[in-house]
């Protein structure tokens, strides 16, 4: 909700619903449409562009001190670029490994300030769980990319769950960023529903999986997201693998896949709501 450096006429941009819903959706939609003119596989890049604009509205462009949350924003840029490079490279052997390596690197860098104060088994548990969580989301999301609509729906549901669970766990900042990712993914989903031949690649699965993973794990380390919440959210990308009748209209397919994914996310959110004390803030 940063407003300094802007005029009064831009106060609307400080509203959370504008920052985390309207702005990322509109920007992702427009940038997705523009990117589509390059090729049918490029429109999903709108997700990371929409997220970055929302992050600018929420956080500003301040990166000092370089906190874990600000690293996530920088990593969004890097993940978008790496995703585009991977897509441009075409078919790759060991694709899951190629995607997992930057995911693990991103997870470790995000929590490095904390890891530097841990040692032994504590270091291993924290580093290992962060790496596995982020890499899992990216690789599972990417493996289902051949089916664009279910993959994007899983991305939407994962981001909604991440936003809700971090918001409940005392970080409105992480919550806003999670919902912004969901809104940007929603625009990509709309494009995938409108155009049958939309394809999804690493320019979507890498940044979306990575951002959802980083935001969720940041909530666990820096706020109060419980481990069981993330464990349930880790199941959400598998919703893309649910086989529904292929002859149904794309909009129905999208609605059903989103419902399945959001249902799992809602389970995680409900469990956190039920088991956690001191929910809320401000």
């Amino acid at each position: 909700m940063v407003t300094h450096g802007r005029s009064r006429g831009m106060d609307t941009l400080s509203l959370p619903e504008i920052q985390s819903a309207v702005a990322p959706f509109v920007v992702a939609l427009i940038s997705g449409l523009v990117a589509r003119t390059i090729g049918r596989g490029w429109s999903p890049i709108g997700a990371v562009i929409g997220f970055l604009v929302a992050a600018w509205l929420i956080n500003g462009v301040q990166f000092t001190p370089l906190t874990g949350t600000r690293k996530i924003i920088l990593l969004a840029v890097a993940a978008g670029i790496v995703g585009v490079v991977i897509d441009a490279a075409g078919r790759l052997r060991l694709r899951p490994v190629i995607l997992a390596v930057p995911s693990v690197g991103a997870a470790l860098w995000m929590i490095w300030n904390v890891l530097a104060r841990r040692d032994g088994s504590q270091w291993l548990i924290l580093a290992g769980s962060a790496s596995v969580y982020v890499a899992w989301l990216v690789v599972v999301l990417d493996t289902g990319r051949q089916r664009a609509i279910p993959t994007v729906c899983a991305g939407v549901a994962l981001a909604i769950g991440t936003g809700a669970i971090t918001l409940l766990s005392a970080s409105a900042l992480l919550g806003q960023l999670g919902f912004a990712l969901a809104a940007a993914n929603g625009a990509v989903l709309l494009l995938a529903v409108v155009w049958k031949n939309t394809s999804v690649g690493a320019s979507f699965t890498l940044p979306v999986g990575m951002l959802a993973g980083l935001l969720g794990f940041a909530g666990l380390v820096f706020a109060r997201v419980p481990w069981y919440g993330l464990t349930i959210l880790a199941v959400v990308p598998l919703s893309a693998y649910v086989r529904l009748p292929t002859r149904m209209p794309r909009v129905v397919l999208a609605a059903l896949h989103t419902l399945i994914g959001v249902g799992i996310s809602a389970g995680a959110v409900a469990l956190v709501w039920w088991l956690m004390e001191d929910i809320g803030g401000y």
Binding site: G68, A170, S171, A172, D278, G281, Y282
Partner: peptide, 10 residues
């Protein structure tokens, strides 16, 4: 609840 928010990355 507010103290939790104050301790968070926010």
């Amino acid at each position: 609840e507010r103290d939790n928010a104050l301790r968070s990355p926010d």
